[in-house]
Design a protein around this nucleic acid. Structure first.
Lengths: 228, 228
DNA sequence: GCAAAAATAATAGTATTACTATCAATATTC
DNA sequence: GAATATTGATAGTAATACTATTATTTTTGC
């Protein structure tokens, strides 16, 4: 990432926070350390009290940024998908061949996540671990009404439709571009999860990556030659 | 289901319960009504106290069957996958053509769930809804040690490897049979979830089913003619 | 049909969670 | 330097996720 990018900010639905955590150093610390703490003890055991103790702040101060821990997880997930979208768009921008473009998009979306220094208070590698392990905790929620859901998951929706459009650009006759796109995104998280926790349920390992599997899958499905 | 089947029982890892719920009428009622209550209020808000009130029994009595609500969900998930496995084996048994066999297996695993009268105290339709909405709550758990995990998820593992073998039988050269099998199972749940909650992220709807999508996907991937 | 054993119910109690409310102490800014 | 905003400390509440104890009911073995 070059210097131009140092003021980049991933836009997040304002309903997800009470006070924008990007607007103060306490807010950034809340986001930064919540990622690490959720990774360490799991979302279920994560509490604002524990986070407060960890950052030498107070439970009540954290509540002034986020309504509850669930909204905080939604915030982190939103950030993650916004970041993925930005990288996908950035890395495929300028590629005119639709096949090459789709191939690159799949690569960005399925490859192992690495640190991005453009966002110093967020550890993308650990955030990725959280998303793999806890993402479904964020959307499996009876509480959310439909209006809110649409707001919270708009990033995800945009990412799926972008990918779906790239699929259509490669094969106009394919009947299930949205389903294929959402399967790739969810399936990638799942393959990484299995690789870590139930390796006998996947062919992914140190040498075979989810990128190999999904690139092959997409190219076979859309009747293209594999050039992954 | 014919009369022969009336004594069928889906085998479940004994570590998942303290006292076998199939062994008493209270136990069966716990299982039966927990499915309905989890569906109604969501797993997060489900408590043994509420369940006790609903079945006119006592919180403490339920604790004698299940250690906690999480183990109960694992029990239900185990039952579900055991039941899916049994139906898949049953319905594909005797089909000798590998392509036809795989096709039938995909159909059983991806189609809309219907009531199975062989198991009177379990509402399979509602159980399926729970699995779609709450399944990942069961395996996203830092608590489980590896030994236990292997015990709890053995059914799932068996189902994935059976499906994977059917894939290999159709195409010995395909490099990712396990990943494809696990993607189908998880992906099916996800497509049903999207169809219900985020219809703009999937092509599945009233007429296009996950069975269509996945049958097409598998047959294209394994270079076969679609005959779904 | 009755005693012993097992299962269930009722009640109480504890530590933790997920907050809300209030007020005091610090920073910030104008 | 006063006014304002932010953060911290403390207390309090209702609900959750249990455990323990004892009472009551049901089952079973003879």
């Amino acid at each position: 990432m070059d210097v131009l990018m140092q003021t980049l900010k991933i836009g997040i639905n304002e309903k997800l926070y009470i006070k924008d955590p990007e607007s103060s150093s306490l807010g950034k610390k809340i986001v930064e350390e919540s990622i690490l703490l959720i990774d360490e003890i799991g979302f279920e055991h994560f509490t604002f009290k524990k986070l407060g103790a960890r950052i030498n702040s107070n439970e009540s101060s954290i509540y002034r940024y986020f309504e509850n821990k669930h909204k905080l997880l939604l915030y982190l997930a939103s950030w993650y998908w916004g970041w993925m979208e930005y990288r996908m768009v950035f890395d495929t921008n300028g590629i005119s061949d639709p096949v090459e473009k789709l191939s690159k998009a799949i690569e960005v979306l399925t490859q192992n996540v690495e640190e991005d220094n453009a966002f110093s208070h967020i550890n993308e590698v650990v955030l990725n671990k959280i998303i793999i392990n806890e993402y479904s905790n964020s959307y499996l929620v009876k509480e959310l009404n439909d209006e809110d859901k649409n707001g919270y998951f708009i990033v995800c929706k945009r990412l799926v439709s972008r990918l779906s459009e790239m699929i259509v650009a490669v094969d106009k006759t394919y009947a299930y571009p949205l389903s294929l796109a959402s399967t790739i995104l969810e399936g990638t998280l799942h393959q990484y999860f299995l690789k870590e926790h139930f390796p006998m349920l996947t062919n992914c390992n140190e040498t075979v990556t989810p990128t190999h599997f999904f690139t092959d899958l997409i190219f076979r499905t859309l009747n293209l030659n594999v050039n992954g």
